[in-house]
């Protein structure tokens, strides 16, 4: 490995060391394990969104729908069908991915603000279904009466229910797989094609690239990964409610991606960490935390449009 390679790999190494060692250092900075899991879960959602937003150049403002579908998919599977954490995760992911794949063809021809608006509007359908279908989803009160379950591996049992550190590592393992797949895809010819579409769609089209088809695949992958995050989110809380599907949740994902830096792979992780910690702090300090979160949106847009990693990269370059 040359020094150039090392330089390229440095951010990855730093991120993974910090994440793997999180249970060791988090208590010293005043955090608690659930908060760590929350950051990783929401970071996965924001990174999934960024696969579409930052690398394909398509603005989705409705990702909460697939996040919520993953959450309800996991929760309802465990509650009604199979009492197994693994099956719940799998079903949750499938539900979100399939919904994304079906809705995709209706929206992929749209661009820019129009795409954003249609994705927001579509997300509301699932919100109303979760909200209205009381008997199955628990309506406004949310889906209760279930918990995540210990994982039996045959030779040993991992008690992810009572041991928050064990659950954190489950989350991290799933995160690693999902993020690994996205990173691999982005490095493949397919991923390079997505970036080409982002940079100049018309040229990509003239080169004979089936642009709509690529956007559809990218959209579906993004939805699938965000529903993985949603399923993990349900397991984390042992609870799902319609707010996981509400349009404000979609906005949270977008601001995480923008705050961290849309043009960098790890940006949304940093954005998610800052956002989650800030929200956690604000909601414990003031009843009007919504105003502060709103103000935070405004400040980020006005002063940090490139995101934190974008700024750092600029500084390094100059």
């Amino acid at each position: 490995m040359g020094s150039n390679d090392l330089q390229k790999q440095a951010p990855n190494i730093v991120v993974w060391v910090l994440l793997l060692a999180l249970p060791l250092w988090l208590p010293y900075v005043g955090g608690y394990m659930e908060l760590g899991s929350r950051v990783v879960v929401l970071a996965l959602a924001a990174m999934a969104l960024n696969f579409l937003l930052g690398y394909t150049g398509v603005l989705s403002f409705g990702h909460a729908a697939y996040f919520g579908l993953g959450a309800y998919g996991a929760g309802m599977t465990i509650r009604y069908l199979v009492p197994s954490t693994g099956v719940g995760l799998l079903v949750g992911t499938l539900v979100g991915a399939v919904a994304g794949a079906i809705i995709g063809p209706m929206i992929i021809r749209l661009r820019g603000v129009y795409f954003a608006m249609v994705t927001i509007a579509f997300a509301q359908v699932f919100y109303f279904i979760a909200f209205r279908w009381n008997s199955v989803t628990g309506g406004d009160d949310g889906l209760t009466g279930w918990t995540r379950l210990p994982i039996h591996l045959g030779f040993t049992t991992i008690d992810i229910l009572h041991n928050p550190v064990a659950f954190y590592f489950l989350v991290l393992a799933v995160f690693a797989v999902a993020v690994g797949v996205m990173a691999w895809l982005l490095r493949s010819p397919f991923g390079r094609t997505l970036i080409a579409i982002r940079e100049n769609e018309r040229r990509a089209r003239f080169l004979g690239i089936p642009v709509d088809q690529h956007i559809w695949i990218s959209w579906t992958i993004s939805c699938a990964v965000v529903s993985v995050a949603g399923a993990l989110y349900a397991l984390l809380n042992n609870f799902v409610d319609p707010r996981a599907l509400y349009w404000t949740q979609s906005g949270d994902f977008v601001i995480m991606a923008v705050l961290g830096g849309m043009r960098s792979f790890w940006g949304p992780l940093i954005g998610a960490a800052i956002f989650v910690v800030l929200q956690d702090y604000l909601s414990s300090q003031t009843e009007n935390w919504m105003s502060f979160v709103g103000l935070f949106f405004v400040l980020v847009v006005m002063f940090f449009p490139r995101g934190i990693l974008g700024i750092i990269r600029r500084k390094v370059a100059s």
Binding site: L59, V293, F296
Partner: peptide, 24 residues
């Protein structure tokens, strides 16, 4: 003249502030 993403996020934040402000 910037990416529509930014005005979306800005007004999104404003929506939060207005709703919470009226509540306050």
């Amino acid at each position: 003249g910037r990416d529509p993403l930014y005005s979306l996020l800005l007004t999104f934040g404003l929506a939060f502030m207005f709703e919470d402000g009226t509540r306050f």
